[in-house]
């Protein structure tokens, strides 16, 4: 929502059943707006790490 991701990158991740860690770590390769990821990627990665910590 409110983001534009590259179709080829997303399709490839889905087709090759990419590990979720890899996807979260490489989100900026899918995004059209590098500025967005520079500002928000840390927050996204932090939230992902927190969820993993709770699950363990």
């Amino acid at each position: 929502m409110g983001l534009r991701l590259r179709q080829a990158v997303c399709e490839n991740w889905i087709k090759t059943q990419t590990p979720i860690h890899t996807v979260i770590g490489r989100l900026k390769t899918a995004n059209f707006d590098p500025e967005f990821y520079r500002r928000h990627e840390p927050a996204i990665q932090r939230q992902f790490a927190e969820i993993l910590a709770v699950k363990r």
Partner: peptide, 8 residues
């Protein structure tokens, strides 16, 4: 104003 995209 909200764009939406979905894959898979």
């Amino acid at each position: 104003n909200l764009e939406y995209q979905t894959y898979g």
